[in-house]
Every structure is written in C-alpha cells, then in structure tokens.
C-alpha cells in the first residue's frame, strides 16, 4: 500500500497545481495510487507517516524536495518501509542521485519499482543520505579510533554516501579532503584530493565549525559520524548516479 506525502510548499501553489493533477491521474492509470497525506504548519510529518504505517502502508512516497525527505527520514528508516519520491521544485539533489526525474515523469519510475538498498549515515545522531560538507575545515579527524588525519593547510571536507562510496549497500562512506597546496616559484595554490573509505570518524575542532549534512547546517566543535545499522530501501531510476 502506498502513501503519498505532499509537502506544504506544493499545496495551493499555482506553479504545481497542473503538475499535481497530472501526477494524480498518472498514478491512478498505473494502479499505484494510495493514501494522500498533506503536510501543514504544526503537523508533525513523522507522526503522520507513523500512523499510516500502522494502518498498513508499505511504501512512502514524498512529493517535494530534499527538505521534505529530511522530515520523514527517521521514521522511514526505522520502520523499514520502501521509500520513493516525486521531486518538485528546486533543491532536489537526492532525486538526481536516485535517477528520478522531476514531476509526472517520476510516476513511471515508481511503477517500475527498481529497488536498491542503501546505507544511511549519522552525524551526532542525525541521519543523512547524500553526505556531509565542511567548507572551511581546519580540524582533526579520527578515523575508526585508529588513526588521526590533519590537513596541514585550509581544506574542504566532504563525506560521500551514495556518489563515490565504493558500494552504497556495502556499508562504507568515503571521506574526501581537498587541501590547499602551494607549488612552484609563484607559490600557486592547488587543491590536492585525499580519499579515505570509512565506517566511523570523529571531527574535533577547537573553534566551532559549520557542517552541512544533506544541505542542513549544523555547528559545533565535535561531530561523530558513523553508519546506521539499519539500511534503507529506495526506489531508483535507471539513471541513478551510483553503482550497486
């Protein structure tokens, strides 16, 4: 049984009115229509989804963007239901990675139901799918409590889950450190890229740093990053940007 969760930014928005009608018709044609839940101010997305799962929903499809996914990620992973999405509007990086086109074209991808299992990362207990970015990075990283890594100059840190990870279903993340290195007589700065596979790491910084998990900002001096024991089953398109 399918449950479709409409984010509040697409409801009553003329820009999406026609597209929503097309989507609803196409889902009915494909025989995968289901219960529609509408997000609104003061309505808790997790509670809404949990109620639907209790009533027998096995596939949760969000209509919205990366922010919508963030609202239901915890409950989807914990309940082990299948996750799908119909991307609408800007900020749809996850849909791109999963190979799901925007709007009504996503309905056929849902109907084809190509399922993949992916790992989910956590940073300080908060789940993430695509990865983490630390743009201004001058901190110490401890990998697997075994060895420490320091950039010797200003660097950027990216932790990838889907793209770049050796196999997103295998349970490894990938850390990419891009450090500034000066070369030649003119001391031109180039970015050198270090790549380390990992299952857990800790970032420690003397001063608070900004970390972006799936695009959402977090600030602090310590970030514990690891992999969730529970994996997530997602519907993907054939144009997904990761290998399994």
């Amino acid at each position: 049984m399918y449950c479709y969760l409409y984010d509040d930014f697409i409801q009553g928005n003329k820009r999406f009115e026609k597209e929503l009608a097309l989507i609803e018709n196409r889902l009915t044609d494909l025989g995968i229509n289901g219960k529609i839940s509408r997000l609104a101010l003061f309505r808790n997305a997790e509670e809404m989804i949990r109620d639907e799962i209790d009533k027998g929903v096995t596939t949760v499809v969000v209509l919205g963007n990366d922010d919508t996914v963030r609202k239901v990620l915890n409950v989807v992973v914990e309940s082990q239901v299948v996750f799908g999405m119909i991307p609408l509007g800007p900020k749809n990086q996850l849909a791109e990675l999963l190979g799901i086109p925007e709007g009504v074209a996503a309905c056929d991808i849902l109907s084809a139901r190509r399922l993949e299992t992916i790992v989910i990362g956590t940073v300080n207990g908060r789940k993430f799918i695509t990865g983490i970015n630390v743009p201004q990075f001058r901190a110490e990283i401890t990998f697997e409590e075994k060895f420490r890594v320091f950039p010797t100059s200003t660097a950027e840190l990216e932790i990838r889950n889907l793209v770049g990870a050796s196999n997103p279903s295998e349970g490894m993340l990938q850390a990419v450190i891009r450090a500034d290195v000066k070369r030649g007589i003119f001391q031109r700065s180039t970015k050198e890229e270090s790549i380390l596979p990992l299952q857990s790491m800790t970032i420690r910084s003397e001063k608070p740093i900004q970390v972006f998990a799936d695009g959402e900002q977090m600030e602090g001096t310590r970030f514990d990053i690891s992999i969730e024991p529970l994996k997530m089953r997602v519907i993907t398109g054939k144009n997904r940007q990761f290998d399994t």
Partner: peptide
Amino acid sequence: SETIIAQGVKVEG
C-alpha cells in the same frame, strides 16, 4: 577501495 593520502594531509597512527 583505494585510499589516497595527498599532499597537504598528515596521518598519525
């Protein structure tokens, strides 16, 4: 998978 420790990075441990 491959690990790369590039210039500008120091590893201890």
